[in-house]
Structures are given as structure tokens and as C-alpha cells.
């Protein structure tokens, strides 16, 4: 067991971990942050996407010890402290961009990374960026709309 320290959603945390402890295990089992999900074991589904030092990262495909000293952001840190949803989260609700909710944390974190890199993506750019995030419920239609809307581009609102 080795001590690992990082900041998660702005809060310094440290714990003793095994070498084989993945970041997602550190978050879910160690910190109780169960919003980050595990949907596959081949690094394809993207339900576990978090930000490590500002970059989208599959938390099931990186060791906790490789995140020593890193700044990690998870879905639990996206809303304001008073519970107000972030613009991306709000767009997902307004545009019905989620159904069962299991892929949603990864989708939101990937969307946030995309808009950070590319504030006004085209539809094709959104779809391409989501290559590593699989959703089985929505057919992606409303996810793409939600992300376009969150970028400030005009999109008809689903919830109207």
C-alpha cells in the first residue's frame, strides 16, 4: 500500500492504495463518489470519464497512483454548491439528454471537456468527440442537441 494524494473537486484527499487501484475505485470505494460509473472493462463506454488536470480521462483506465498530485474533477463537482445545475447539466435536462442516467456522468464530463477545447462545435464535431462515450438509451439525438444548446447555439428545446 502506498499513499496517494490529489485534489478531488477542489478538496485535498489522500489515502493508502494498492498499486492496482484504479482511479475509479479510489473515487467510488475510497471517497464514496459513486457518480462515476463503470460500464465496461475495455475502456470504451466512457461512463467513467472524469477530468484529470483539466483533461477528459477514463477513470477506469488510469491508476490512482498515476494521479498523485493531480487535480481531479468528477460529476459531483459540476453543480454549484447550492445545487444549481451547470449550464451543461441544465441543457441535458432541458433537452432530455438522458434516460437511465448511467452513461450520463461520463457524457456530461466529456461534453464539458469538449466545450472547453471547442466552445462552439458543429454537430459533426460533437458526434466525433463522443466516440468514447456509449449511450444505449437516447440514440444520442438529445445528447447532441443538449451539448449544442449548452454551447449557446440555437437548438429547439425538447421540453417544450
Amino acid at each position: 500500500m502506498t499513499k496517494v494524494s490529489m485534489r478531488v473537486n477542489g478538496r485535498p484527499v489522500s489515502a493508502e492504495v494498492e498499486g492496482r487501484t484504479l482511479l475509479v475505485q479510489f473515487l467510488r470505494e475510497g471517497l464514496g463518489l459513486t457518480g462515476t460509473h463503470v460500464g465496461c472493462d475495455t475502456a470504451q463506454c466512457g461512463a467513467c470519464v472524469v477530468h484529470v488536470d483539466g483533461r477528459a480521462t477514463k477513470a477506469c483506465n488510469v491508476f490512482a497512483m498515476d494521479c498523485d498530485g493531480a487535480e481531479v474533477a468528477t460529476i459531483e463537482g459540476m453543480a454549484a454548491p447550492d445545487g444549481t445545475l451547470s449550464p451543461i447539466q441544465q441543457a441535458f435536462q432541458d433537452h432530455h439528454g438522458l434516460q437511465c442516467g448511467f452513461c450520463t456522468p461520463g457524457m456530461v464530463m466529456s461534453a464539458a471537456a469538449l466545450l472547453d477545447e471547442n466552445p462552439r462545435p458543429t454537430e459533426a464535431e460533437v458526434r466525433e468527440y463522443l466516440e468514447g462515450n456509449i449511450c444505449r438509451c437516447t440514440g444520442y439525438h438529445n445528447i447532441v442537441k443538449a451539448i449544442l444548446a449548452a454551447s449557446g447555439q440555437p437548438v429547439a428545446v425538447a421540453a417544450e
Partner: peptide
């Protein structure tokens, strides 16, 4: 290569 999260690692 891969997807954006894979390219970041």
C-alpha cells in the same frame, strides 16, 4: 487515435 479521453493518456 481512439477517442478524446484515450488520446489524453
Amino acid at each position: 487515435i481512439g477517442d478524446p479521453a484515450v488520446r489524453n493518456r
